[in-house]
Design a protein around this nucleic acid. Structure first.
Lengths: 206, 206, 206, 206
DNA sequence: ACGCACGGGACTCCCCGTTGGT
DNA sequence: ACCAACGGGGAGTCCCGTGCGT
């Protein structure tokens, strides 16, 4: 049990407060429009404190990407943690998790990495690479399950699991993007259901 | 016949120069990161000129959305202008056009409306509405063709043309988004081909 | 007669106000310690205005060097403007002018270029070059007079006019430097008188 | 005998490390441009450590002046340590030492006290006084030798040893100052040689 | 229709110094 | 004796927008 000092000074907690505040602001208004002042006043720190924890805004951006990806993976992990389960079922668990994101009240279904990829890919090489890596991770996990499902179910339709994984990832990101303009997340759910049928169709004998 | 002054001052042309410059910059670095100074120096004007044509940056944003959508529609229109053609073929023409966007050298396959939707939807209601309208237009066109194809081909698989159109639009936007992090547009093409198969499958008897 | 608009907007005058304020501040506290806010509040402008006239602080520094050198040359010019005069007499006029600098009340005898050379030579190559050029100008003028005096008076003591000019320039700069620590300019005057004797000795037959 | 802890913690050594780092940085970029962070990272300490040894930046400045002067005196002392020697010879030893400063590779011929006098005299009374004292020390030493030489050689030319000492000190400081803008120290050597001739001339019968 | 000068207000980043702990 | 976390307050730069002038 880590001994916490009575002091309100817990560096890793402070750092996390900064990241949390940043994530919230970035999701809403984007990375560029989010100022360090915003972040500080949101997290009750001062700029002096901010720059103790992060060398610059870019570094914060990388930490945000890192953290968002970690958080996502932790949530998605529930889909495949039962390694005995039918991989096709695991995939559907993934969809269920994604659908659940659309059902949280007071939390719009948006993606920090999607936002930062849009804004920063062509101007911030390091952030672009980080986004690419984390998007690739999602894809790899999905591809792994698809491949396992192929092995188990031997579908007649042949497909490349990686391509299909990118297809699903793109759909997911695009759904969240477009949905931001429409305020109601119903379309995302519709898309995910169509995607489920699509995946089912891959494994259904004609 | 409008009398041209001896000067090369053509207001609507100047306005267009501003929009062109803005589009280029927004595609690359986003709306928020694009400053009016950037736009002016890119288009060889001064801020005085800018503010003559646009009330503020927001107004410019709306003009950019408008213009980008118009330009897109003009390009996509070729897909359905031959109203006699099989609507399924028209849909495939749409895909061909989209694929051609990925093949232009020196012009990354990105969407200004996708960018602005991401950045501005939750903070700029007017721009959000504009984006929603223009994204809706694409969807409507696609849905119209899908419905016509349904009528013509009477597929066994039943589907809602509007839902499928949103599905395709989301995939398209998401593909461009993710592809920005990967620098090679191959993934977009793969996705579009999978989408073509998907649409074909909708109309193929099982 | 240049028509002045009734407006208080005279760009070149504003620019000069900025330079004047900068010079005053730099003389007192140095370039590094002089903030743009200082300059603005001293000259009644805002930072927005400042950056309209100068790209950055460095550019201002260059303008200050330029202006200081010009002002100096204008003052020293009186020493040699009568081209008929004995060059040795011209040199003594130079000394008189320098001595007069030590006698101005409320204006300490200091040199902006000396200050900036000290502070910036090893870190700001462009400013270093500018300082070098302007210091060289003073030296050239002095060397020119020395050479002319050599020609006219044919002294037995041989010397290199350029070396002696640098010697005098160094003495002058060093006098002002050290004198800053002593608050009374008497030492500068003593040094200048010694320098006059030194020059005289160069031309006196042994 | 002070007991050394097993740690390599030697307070007075640490203090010296801070001074050394400060001197190096001040010589290069001046006192104002040298930040405490610079000094800490240069000397491998943290700010906590810095403020343990120095109350504030001003206090450090005083220590730097003190240390620089001490170091200088130690070097110059060799000129006059043989008290039996002809004082004129001692003076020439001084010049030799100064010339040797111009010949060290990788160490530009610059003076920390000259730098700090320029930057701080008019704004930091305590530092100004310290600089004045240390500059006075050099002058006193030089004046002492000049006076002794007067006594010994009884020159026809009468002069005030203190005035001449200030003259030489000013020349020395000014040479280093101007030379910073020219990157090659040749001019300093030329000036010192001229100064040697000047001193010789004082003692030579006409 | 467009340019120039400028205001006012951020924005990123830095800098000196303090406080509590080891 | 030394360090890490943080506060408070700029510094330099930029940015949107205005208003006058042509």
């Amino acid at each position: 049990m880590p001994k916490k000092s009575s002091l309100t000074r817990d560096p890793s907690l402070t750092r996390q407060k900064l990241i949390d505040a940043s994530v919230g602001l970035i999701l809403r208004q984007g990375f560029n429009a989010t100022t360090i002042d915003d972040i500080c006043s949101e997290s009750g720190l001062t700029k002096g404190g901010f720059f103790h924890h992060f060398e610059n805004k870019n570094t914060l951006g990388r930490a945000v990407i890192q953290w968002w990806s970690q958080m996502g993976t932790d949530l998605y992990k529930k889909a495949w943690q039962d390694s005995e389960e039918d991989p096709l079922k695991q995939i559907h668990r993934m969809f269920d998790i994604m659908i659940s994101f659309t059902e949280r009240p007071d939390a719009p279904c948006v993606c920090a990495i999607g936002m930062m990829s849009q804004e920063l890919s062509l101007t911030h090489p390091d952030l672009r690479k980080d986004c690419a890596r984390e998007l690739g991770l999602w894809t790899e996990n999905m591809a792994r399950m698809l491949k396992a499902a192929q092995k188990k179910h031997a579908p007649v339709t042949s497909f490349d699991p990686i391509q299909v994984a990118w297809f699903l990832n793109s759909l997911w990101q695009g759904s969240m993007l477009i949905s931001k303009t429409r305020q109601k997340p119903q379309m995302i759910r519709d898309n995910l259901h169509l995607a489920q049928s699509y995946v089912n169709a891959l494994f259904r004998s004609p």
